[in-house]
Design a protein around this nucleic acid. Structure first.
Ligand code: FES
Ligand code: FES
Lengths: 145, 145
DNA sequence: ATAAACCGGACTAATAGTGTACGGATTAAA
DNA sequence: TTTAATCCGTACACTATTAGTCCGGTTTAT
């Protein structure tokens, strides 16, 4: 169905909150309350994002998360790869890893999905986080809806 | 992981065989033998393709399948949608169907994945089946490898 | 020392995808 | 008219992936 997981979706939501208060540290709990996403899930998303250095994490008592860059500097490709792993359209599309394709020997287009793959990837490279943040930036941030 | 299912992959393989003998009818069994893909699976792929009129099916004793158009006339978008259903990057990306998103009320980018979605779709629209058929067109077709 | 907060990984349940099977419909040919 | 080849549609079991949660460990301000 060529869709990505919900985690990416959540990530955008969480990042929106973070982007609204750039520089400020916000804890996972705070973000969970603002977004309505369950806390453990928010934590998971944040962990993934920090691994790819899209957000910055500070441990310890006054810790929390903040964005490392402005939204324009975060490509959609980065986001998706942080949440879902490398973008590869098919099992045998990735670089040269055709191992798990059991018909590779007689496949007439071995690896040609790569073209599709890079087409998609460059489409994604052309977009960044600020394209995804709604023009609803200055909204109140404490309440629920 | 933003990848599509194996069925799409198989579809290309099967279509390659079909494209090599354009106009000729070929049965699911023949195609299965040529491709090495199990027959029931080939049949499934063919059914999906015929539903979207990418291949033409003829029933009855001398029946079989053939391509309806030349490969240049079949976009990758069509192919993928035939095999995997509509291309929608997230649950709430499709037109206006945000029903299954339980945080839609407070989501700051409700539906903005649509931008990503159309970027991907147009990348895919720009490619067609002949881009995926390897330059190995005039190969013998009876044997296995 | 204590408590707030992140880190890493493991675990379970739910969902989606893979591959197969079966009964039915259609049609050329015997 | 009967038969057999062939597609059609759907339904099913099996497997892989994803979603969501939990827990013990580490860091750090007070
Ligand atoms: S389908 Fe895997 S190599 Fe072609
Ligand atoms: S995440 Fe679904 S509407 Fe925003």
């Amino acid at each position: 169905m060529i869709k990505l997981s919900k985690l990416s979706d959540y990530a955008i939501v969480v990042l929106s909150c973070l982007a609204a208060e750039r520089g400020q540290l916000q804890t996972a709990v705070m973000l969970a309350q603002q977004t309505g996403i369950p806390e453990p899930t928010v934590a998971k998303v944040l962990k993934l994002l920090s691994k790819k250095e899209i957000v910055n994490s500070v441990r310890g008592v006054k810790g929390g998360y903040s964005m490392t860059r402005i939204p324009d500097q975060v490509t959609v490709t980065e986001l998706i790869e942080a949440l879902e792993g490398p973008i590869s359209i098919t099992s045998c599309a990735d670089s040269e890893i055709e191992s798990d394709c059991h018909i590779a020997q007689l496949c007439p287009m071995r690896g040609n999905w790569n073209k599709v793959n890079s087409a998609v990837k460059s489409a994604l490279d052309g977009m960044n986080l600020s394209d995804l943040l709604l023009p609803v930036s200055p909204q109140r941030k404490g309440g629920r809806a």
